[in-house]
Protein backbone atom coordinates (compact mmCIF):
# COMPACT_ATOMS: atom_id res chain seq x y z
CA UNK A 1 0.00 0.00 0.00
CA UNK A 2 1.69 3.18 -1.12
CA UNK A 3 -0.62 5.64 0.66
CA UNK A 4 -0.27 5.76 4.45
CA UNK A 5 -3.62 5.74 6.25
CA UNK A 6 -3.57 7.22 9.75
CA UNK A 7 -6.28 6.76 12.33
CA UNK A 8 -7.17 9.66 14.55
CA UNK A 9 -10.13 8.85 16.77
CA UNK A 10 -13.06 8.08 14.51
CA UNK A 11 -11.38 9.62 11.48
CA UNK A 12 -9.12 7.99 8.89
CA UNK A 13 -6.60 10.21 7.13
CA UNK A 14 -5.23 9.07 3.77
CA UNK A 15 -2.34 11.28 2.88
CA UNK A 16 -1.32 10.87 -0.74
CA UNK A 17 2.42 11.52 -0.91
CA UNK A 18 3.23 11.36 -4.61
CA UNK A 19 1.74 10.81 -8.04
CA UNK A 20 -0.25 7.57 -7.97
CA UNK A 21 -0.82 5.10 -10.74
CA UNK A 22 -4.38 4.03 -11.48
CA UNK A 23 -3.80 0.75 -9.67
CA UNK A 24 -2.55 2.46 -6.51
CA UNK A 25 -5.65 4.68 -6.46
CA UNK A 26 -7.91 1.67 -6.75
CA UNK A 27 -5.94 -0.04 -3.95
CA UNK A 28 -6.49 3.02 -1.78
CA UNK A 29 -10.23 2.87 -2.44
CA UNK A 30 -10.42 -0.79 -1.43
CA UNK A 31 -8.20 -0.35 1.62
CA UNK A 32 -10.28 2.59 2.90
CA UNK A 33 -13.56 0.73 2.41
CA UNK A 34 -12.15 -2.14 4.44
CA UNK A 35 -10.75 -0.01 7.26
CA UNK A 36 -13.90 2.11 7.62
CA UNK A 37 -15.69 -1.07 8.65
CA UNK A 38 -12.91 -2.66 10.67
CA UNK A 39 -12.08 0.48 12.64
CA UNK A 40 -15.67 1.77 12.80
CA UNK A 41 -14.61 5.11 11.37
CA UNK A 42 -17.11 7.90 10.86
CA UNK A 43 -15.01 10.10 8.67
CA UNK A 44 -12.36 9.89 5.96
CA UNK A 45 -10.00 12.68 4.93
CA UNK A 46 -8.22 12.31 1.60
CA UNK A 47 -5.30 14.69 1.42
CA UNK A 48 -4.30 15.36 -2.19
CA UNK A 49 -1.97 18.31 -1.46
CA UNK A 50 0.98 16.47 -3.04
CA UNK A 51 -0.86 15.68 -6.30
CA UNK A 52 0.07 17.88 -9.24
CA UNK A 53 -2.54 16.35 -11.56
CA UNK A 54 -6.09 15.17 -10.93
CA UNK A 55 -7.24 13.77 -14.25
CA UNK A 56 -10.57 12.14 -15.08
CA UNK A 57 -9.51 8.74 -13.75
CA UNK A 58 -8.22 10.08 -10.43
CA UNK A 59 -11.33 12.22 -9.97
CA UNK A 60 -13.60 9.28 -10.72
CA UNK A 61 -11.71 7.08 -8.25
CA UNK A 62 -11.83 9.71 -5.49
CA UNK A 63 -15.54 10.03 -6.12
CA UNK A 64 -15.77 6.24 -5.83
CA UNK A 65 -13.91 6.34 -2.51
CA UNK A 66 -16.32 8.94 -1.12
CA UNK A 67 -19.45 7.07 -2.26
CA UNK A 68 -18.11 3.73 -1.01
CA UNK A 69 -17.25 5.24 2.39
CA UNK A 70 -20.72 6.80 2.54
CA UNK A 71 -22.36 3.44 1.97
CA UNK A 72 -20.20 2.11 4.79
CA UNK A 73 -21.39 4.86 7.12
CA UNK A 74 -18.53 7.36 6.90
CA UNK A 75 -18.28 10.87 5.50
CA UNK A 76 -15.41 11.90 3.24
CA UNK A 77 -13.68 15.23 2.88
CA UNK A 78 -11.15 15.83 0.09
CA UNK A 79 -8.54 18.37 1.17
CA UNK A 80 -5.61 20.15 -0.43
CA UNK A 81 -6.61 20.46 -4.10
CA UNK A 82 -3.99 22.89 -5.41
CA UNK A 83 -5.23 26.03 -7.21
CA UNK A 84 -3.82 25.11 -10.62
CA UNK A 85 -5.14 21.54 -10.23
CA UNK A 86 -8.59 22.96 -9.45
CA UNK A 87 -8.37 25.15 -12.55
CA UNK A 88 -7.37 22.19 -14.75
CA UNK A 89 -10.25 20.13 -13.35
CA UNK A 90 -12.74 22.87 -14.21
CA UNK A 91 -11.34 23.14 -17.77
CA UNK A 92 -11.52 19.39 -18.12
CA UNK A 93 -15.17 19.45 -17.02
CA UNK A 94 -14.59 17.44 -13.85
CA UNK A 95 -16.33 18.04 -10.56
CA UNK A 96 -16.62 16.48 -7.14
CA UNK A 97 -20.33 17.20 -6.86
CA UNK A 98 -21.81 16.08 -3.57
CA UNK A 99 -18.39 15.50 -2.02
CA UNK A 100 -17.16 17.73 0.77
CA UNK A 101 -13.90 19.57 0.20
CA UNK A 102 -11.76 21.74 2.44
CA UNK A 103 -8.68 23.87 1.93
CA UNK A 104 -6.31 21.78 4.03
CA UNK A 105 -6.12 18.92 6.53
CA UNK A 106 -6.92 21.14 9.51
CA UNK A 107 -10.07 22.55 7.90
CA UNK A 108 -11.10 19.08 6.77
CA UNK A 109 -10.80 17.67 10.31
CA UNK A 110 -12.84 20.58 11.68
CA UNK A 111 -15.53 20.00 9.07
CA UNK A 112 -15.83 16.30 10.00
CA UNK A 113 -15.90 17.04 13.74
CA UNK A 114 -18.68 19.59 13.29
CA UNK A 115 -20.84 17.21 11.28
CA UNK A 116 -23.81 15.84 13.25
CA UNK A 117 -23.42 12.14 14.01
Amino acid sequence: MSVPILKQGEILIASIQSALSDRELVELRDELADRVGRLRSRGVVIDVTALDVLDSFATRTIRGIAYTAKLRGAKTVVVGIQPEVAFAMVQLGLSLDGIATALDLEEGMLLLQRWPK
Binding site: D52, V53, L54, D55, S56, F57, Q82, E84, V85, F87, A88, Q91, L92
Partner: peptide, 9 residues
Protein backbone atom coordinates in the same frame (compact mmCIF):
# COMPACT_ATOMS: atom_id res chain seq x y z
CA UNK B 1 -0.54 21.61 -14.92
CA UNK B 2 -2.94 21.97 -17.86
CA UNK B 3 -0.39 20.29 -20.16
CA UNK B 4 0.37 17.49 -17.69
CA UNK B 5 -3.36 16.85 -17.29
CA UNK B 6 -3.94 16.80 -21.06
CA UNK B 7 -1.04 14.32 -21.49
CA UNK B 8 -2.55 12.15 -18.77
CA UNK B 9 -5.89 12.03 -20.60
Amino acid sequence: TLLATAISE
